[in-house]
C-alpha cells in the first residue's frame, strides 16, 4: 500500500495537559471505579439497616466530634488543593513546591483524626454487621487518603528533584489535585451516612 501524507503534525505540542493528557483520563477512570465502590458500600450500609430491627445495631450513634472535625478539615484542604492545581497549570515551580508541602500536611492530619473516628463508632468490626460495615467504610476511605498522601509525598520529592520542572510533572500535580478533590467529595456522603443516618 502506498502511503500518502495528508496531515502535518509537526506543529503539535510534545505533551498535553488536562483533558489532552491520557493520565487525566486514566485518573478519571479510576475515580469512576472507586466511586462505584464507595457507592456500593453505602448501599450495603442502607441494606443492612433495612434488615435490622433497630439502627445502629447494638450501640449508640457515633460521636460527632472527630468525624466532623475531619470533614471540616477535608473541606478546608480543598482551598490549597485547588490553588496547587492552578499553580501547576501555570507551571509555577516555587508555589507548587510550597503547595505540595501544605497538601502533604493536610493529608496527614486527617489520618490522625481518623484514629479517633474508629473508637467514636462505639463498636468493633467483629461485634455485629453494623460494626463490620462502618469499619469497612472508614477503612476503605482511609486507604484512599493514605494512597493520596503517599502520592503527594512522592510528588513533593519529585518537584524538589531535577526531574521537577517539566510540563509532565506539572500535569501529574494537577491529576493528583483532582484525585484529592475526589477523596474529599466521596467522604461527604459517607460522613452523612455514618454519622447522621443513625441519628434519623
Amino acid at each position: 500500500m502506498k502511503a500518502n501524507t495528508v496531515l502535518d503534525l509537526t506543529k503539535l505540542p510534545a505533551h498535553g495537559l488536562g483533558t489532552v493528557s491520557p493520565s487525566w483520563w486514566g485518573t478519571l477512570a479510576f475515580m469512576l471505579i472507586e466511586g462505584t465502590g464507595f457507592a456500593l458500600t453505602i448501599v450495603i450500609y442502607l441494606y443492612l439497616m433495612s434488615l435490622a430491627p433497630r439502627w445502629p445495631l447494638g450501640t449508640t450513634p457515633p460521636d460527632l466530634l472527630a468525624g466532623t472535625t475531619l470533614t471540616v478539615l477535608l473541606l478546608a484542604s480543598l482551598v490549597p488543593n485547588i490553588l496547587v492545581g492552578r499553580w501547576a497549570r501555570g507551571q509555577d515551580l516555587r508555589k507548587v513546591r510550597l503547595g505540595l508541602i501544605v497538601m502533604a500536611a493536610l493529608g496527614i492530619a486527617p489520618l490522625i483524626l481518623r484514629a479517633f473516628e474508629f473508637p467514636a463508632m462505639h463498636i468493633k468490626w467483629d461485634q455485629n454487621a453494623y460494626g463490620s460495615i462502618v469499619w469497612f467504610m472508614l477503612g476503605l476511605h482511609t486507604t484512599h487518603i493514605l494512597t493520596d498522601v503517599i502520592e503527594t509525598l512522592v510528588l513533593t520529592c519529585l518537584m524538589f528533584s531535577r526531574h521537577g520542572d517539566t510540563p509532565r510533572r506539572f500535569g501529574d500535580v494537577t491529576d493528583n489535585a483532582m484525585y484529592w478533590n475526589f477523596v474529599v467529595a466521596t467522604w461527604l456522603p459517607m460522613y452523612a451516612c455514618l454519622y447522621w443516618i443513625p441519628r434519623l
Binding site: 502506498k2 501524507t5 493528557s21
Partner: peptide, 30 residues
C-alpha cells in the same frame, strides 16, 4: 491502493498522537 497518513511525529522517543474524544482531531504528540 493507498493509505492516507499523517507526518510530523518524533522518532527519538516513543511518540504517539493524542486526538480529541469525539472527532479525533489531533491535539498533542505524547
Amino acid at each position: 491502493a493507498e493509505l492516507r497518513v499523517a507526518a510530523g511525529l518524533g522518532v527519538d522517543r516513543r511518540e504517539l498522537l493524542i486526538t480529541s474524544v469525539a472527532e479525533a482531531v489531533p491535539e498533542a504528540r505524547e
